[in-house]
Design a protein around this nucleic acid. Structure first.
Lengths: 213, 213, 213, 213
DNA sequence: CATGAATGAGTGTTCATTCAT
DNA sequence: TATGAATGAACACTCATTCAT
């Protein structure tokens, strides 16, 4: 998820300056391969061959095959977090910010389906996830939304009888829920109407009535 | 999907009469194992051990490991098709029949989540699916619904400006779409309200207004 | 240690009847290779090639490479225990039995230097030894000697103020101590004079004076 | 063997003056690591990390991993030879000199068990030993003893009907023989009584009777 | 003098599959 | 009908070593 191909984000640019060529080629090779097959069915030999490097090089730069995956995922989540923050900068009002965040979430899912799919289906349910760097990066991302909710509660826009964390979970969970089928069945989705749907529910359930714009 | 434990369907009974003990034991072994682990992580050694037979016996009865999976899946789809037909027997009117079929679909998904999951996630997107017996059985199943739609068009209950096959696809696709998240996130789902939702849409979009009961 | 090449012991004969050819070939291959290189420097590929079988066959019959080693070692220890028992059958008096056991120990070390070396140097000091089948077989062997000591204590031939287990340890430990250099430097050793040396010590330190023959 | 920690021998001092820092750090790293694991199980990566230098630097100063080992071993043997010579300076009489040499040998084994063990078990039996610098240094050391024996023969203290080289071999071989078990089983040993034992044998078998002090 | 980057050749182990009986 | 024996091909991962800079 969360990758904006073409646009090189700040952190990516930094990475390319510091990271050795081989490391980048390996990461790109896995990204490419993930487009066509599942992580488990991709072999290290294949990754190396696609990257045009020696198999052993993978283990110089990444702890193991799964470590490489987590690194890629984490990188995109961090990139995404950055983009989200930039996106929110020129929006006013908690409700509008949340709406923007929801739209951004869908947009991000949409723009990088592979990573969304892998994160949700192949990584998150596996043991060790909560110790992975992917988890920490995902948390950083969701913390941005959490902070938004807390702000909303503080300034009275959002009801204060539900813990902020719950509300954040419901918002991001709903997005995922709504997006998942389009991900699995590889169909297009109308992200504007999805955003609208979730906002309707939020208006009725989370925000106080008078705050509706 | 589509298994009705306890109730031995006609085709299953037939199978048990004709199929050698070993073949059945192998199929059951895989079914059992699939409840706890993914198909790829199940080894033939494990299947044989669970079945209490020799590993080589798998290859006497099935082309290979994947063939065994397709056979099981196909069996359940055929069983399911039979059940669906029985179900529809005492329902009158195309709309009511379709509604029943939709409910049955959800019920079947629900009763055998493993097979649904495997079919949708582990089998259908893989190369060779359209040559597999699973595909043919799935087609037989969907043909029952297709026939229903065609009847509806013939008797004027359903609009005739959309190809029957499209309508059938939309119906079954919607069911899957609605059910999938509950499958992936392993949550319960209210099949009655799901049925109702889909029927609402069908009423507005597919059936002619006056046909609403 | 403890193997008597040429002479096929009862248990070995039984083994050869029941064990598949491949399993025997693998075990023999490792035995052969151990004559020239250390266990760690022998690869599974080498074992398989020497045995004339496929590498994977090793893992059908043995848990892993180390398991194969333990199995071989254990087999020889069990064989040896059997031989020792036969050897002791026609000896009278605890002292004479112990003397025979000591002589047998040296003879066994001598006849199968490879196994002695591996057991003492490559296996016994490694983690997991006390859970290995080698340990259990070695224990069965030493239990024969322990029983002898206990008999001696019971019939008054051996002093009763030192635990039987200590005495057994001292006896077998002394044998090993005395034999080890000849093992490592691969030199011949006079087993009769070694036996005599240890017996002298035993007479002065363990047996009561009057029991000396 | 043969290391005298704390005391910096002349050759070591020389070495430290001439050798680049990196080379010394690498040698020390291996010495440190050898205290806890076998040479084969130590990786070049580990050596470099412990030394705080780049892995490739090992290959600038040493032919390969084994070359590094030989260099260390050789260094200690040369150090040891120097110490032995110093030790013998203020001893009079061939017999007393030899006795001192024997005691020194045990003392040296004792003070640096790791090197003794590696030399005897891991290095000396391997192909290429006789071309290694370790062998040449070991020879320089044993030549000191050989010279002693030759002196004894010349001045009539030692019988002249056995080649000097044989006598030297017997002396050093006996020391090793006696020390080895304590090395392998990692037990303490009384070096004074060991020295005495060997001297007894020498007196009876090598020296002429009247030369006994 | 020292290093970052890269690799060839293995390392033990696994697994679906075949075949003679 | 069923099995014991055997295997080819792959698997993730490791390591000593090289080389350009």
């Amino acid at each position: 998820m969360i990758v904006h191909p073409g646009k090189k984000s700040a952190s990516n640019a930094a990475r390319e300056r510091s990271d050795p060529e081989g490391k980048i080629k390996i990461a790109n090779a896995l990204k490419t391969l993930l487009q066509k097959k599942s992580f488990n069915s991709i072999t290290t030999a294949e990754i190396a061959k696609t990257a045009g490097v020696n198999e052993a090089l993978i283990y110089r730069y990444y702890k193991n095959k799964r470590g490489l995956l987590h690194n890629i995922l984490s990188q995109y989540l961090l990139d995404s977090e950055l983009q989200l923050k930039l996106c929110l900068r020129d929006v006013n009002g908690t409700f509008n910010k949340l709406k923007k965040a929801i739209w951004f979430q869908f947009d991000t899912y949409n723009k990088n389906r592979i990573f969304a799919k892998i994160h949700v289906i192949e990584v998150r349910n596996f043991p060790g996830y909560f110790q992975s760097e992917t988890y920490f990066s995902a948390k950083k991302y969701s913390d941005v939304v959490l902070k938004l909710v807390k702000e909303g509660i503080a300034n009275g826009e959002i009801r204060d009888d539900i813990p902020a964390w719950y509300i954040m979970q419901i918002i991001l969970g709903s997005c995922e829920h709504l997006f998942l089928p389009s991900l699995i069945f590889d169909r297009e989705i109308d992200i504007d109407s999805c955003t609208e749907s979730i906002c309707q529910i939020l208006l009725q359930g989370v925000f106080k009535v008078e705050s509706a714009s």
